[in-house]
Design a protein around this nucleic acid. Structure first.
Lengths: 216, 216
DNA sequence: CTCGGTGCTGTGAACGCGCTGAGGACACCG
DNA sequence: CGGTGTCCTCAGCGCGTTCACAGCACCGAG
């Protein structure tokens, strides 16, 4: 369970309460940190405050859905206006609770979300004739399967979620290689080379001095 | 869309409003009528009042779930006590709205429910010539029975619910082995080995660095 | 053209993932 | 109390993967 909440007292209370229910709970205090944690995956569901430093809960869930992450999201907000609520849900949240809320209700709604579970969505990324299915961990190029190693797959996955954008080697090291300090930026060049060999030379463009871009 | 509501004016208003949104709407005015209609199937979701003649909304949804109907249920009630709400959700409803409610919010919540969709729970899992009957606890391969131990069965069960998808050892430990912290990931490897021996070498694919996949 | 910087790639070594056989712990049963 | 079956740990092995390194190619500026 992932809790994204910047009020320290509330976050701690939620963590304690949920742990008592048997959940493994991680807490993130800012929008960007929450987004990263959610991307990193492995959570059954997410409790998300709307007012967050760095990135609002609305925007967070919108990006998450745009990037094909479908974990259940329960949104928390002090705003009880009907349109606030509708906006939150239409951004992609699955439930919306206004503060102050009853802990009993929160738990019941969480159970309902988990029961329902995350559906297997059209979780297939497609760029040109390239297709990548994160769940099946399969990549095809013009309907022919391409076999990738774990690192190659993670790299292509990251690039395909932002097709056409230039992504720096540092950013790739941060997100595809977890311990970025340990690894030399050259490793990125090496793996881009591997991908080019398997996918075709001109699929990955080099932007000198800036990074790489996946051709659309 | 199925609306189960005995207040005629509210039911008519809901029907009109939802039809304006493009839903095909049927209305049932009593508990038993609602249950029958839901059983008959074909609805994407259901809006269900709690106070109904003949059969309460709680009981209705409980029976529905017991009979393996999984359509999304949005529960409506005049009771706004926290325990009323928790009870409704724990009976199997997916969302709970207290009267009076905002029509905008109702619609947003309905959209969220439909987006998420109803999970499928087939009685017998079948993948290729492999069949697994959870109720009878039997597995056959090309109509020949395969004898599995409890752990082997649980593992295959989990894998067969998501054929073709890659499932990590950690996830398997979490769901097939309850106490994941206690058990080494190697146990998964061992049991995959057992299953391969009993089911055939290439039924279970190893995806190095990621997990295992049941060949479709 | 020259030159510095940036990116590409072949080589090779170390690492660590996953597979397996052996065997201990435990429960159940005759 | 020994036999049987299941569960799981452990250690060793094979091999694919990862990544550092170094030399080379290429690009753009002067």
């Amino acid at each position: 369970m992932l809790v994204v909440e910047d009020e320290v007292r509330l976050a701690a209370a939620l963590q304690r309460g949920l742990q008592a229910e048997g959940f493994a709970v991680d807490v993130a205090a800012t929008g960007p940190a929450g987004l990263d944690a959610a991307r990193h995956g492995g959570y059954d569901a997410m409790i998300l405050d709307v007012m967050l430093p760095g990135l609002s809960g609305y925007e967070l869930v919108r990006r998450l859905r745009a990037e094909q992450y479908w974990l259940p999201v329960l949104m928390l907000s002090a705003k009880d206006g009907e349109y606030d609520q509708a906006d939150g849900l239409d951004c992609g949240a699955d439930d919306y609770l206004t503060k102050p809320f009853s802990y009993v209700v929160l738990l019941a709604r969480l159970r309902a979300l988990l029961r329902r579970g995350a559906p297997e969505r059209p979780a297939v990324l497609a760029v040109g004739d390239l297709r990548l299915d994160p769940a099946r961990r399969r990549v095809t190029r013009a309907d022919a399967e391409v076999v990738l190693t774990a690192r190659e797959f993670a790299l292509l996955d990251y690039l395909m979620r932002r097709p056409g954008q230039v992504i720096s080697k540092i950013e790739l090291l941060d997100h595809v290689w977890d311990a970025s300090l340990e690894t030399a930026p050259n490793a990125v060049e090496v793996y881009v080379g591997y991908l080019r060999r398997k996918l075709g030379r001109d699929r990955l463009e080099t932007v000198r001095g800036a990074g790489y871009r996946l051709a659309t």
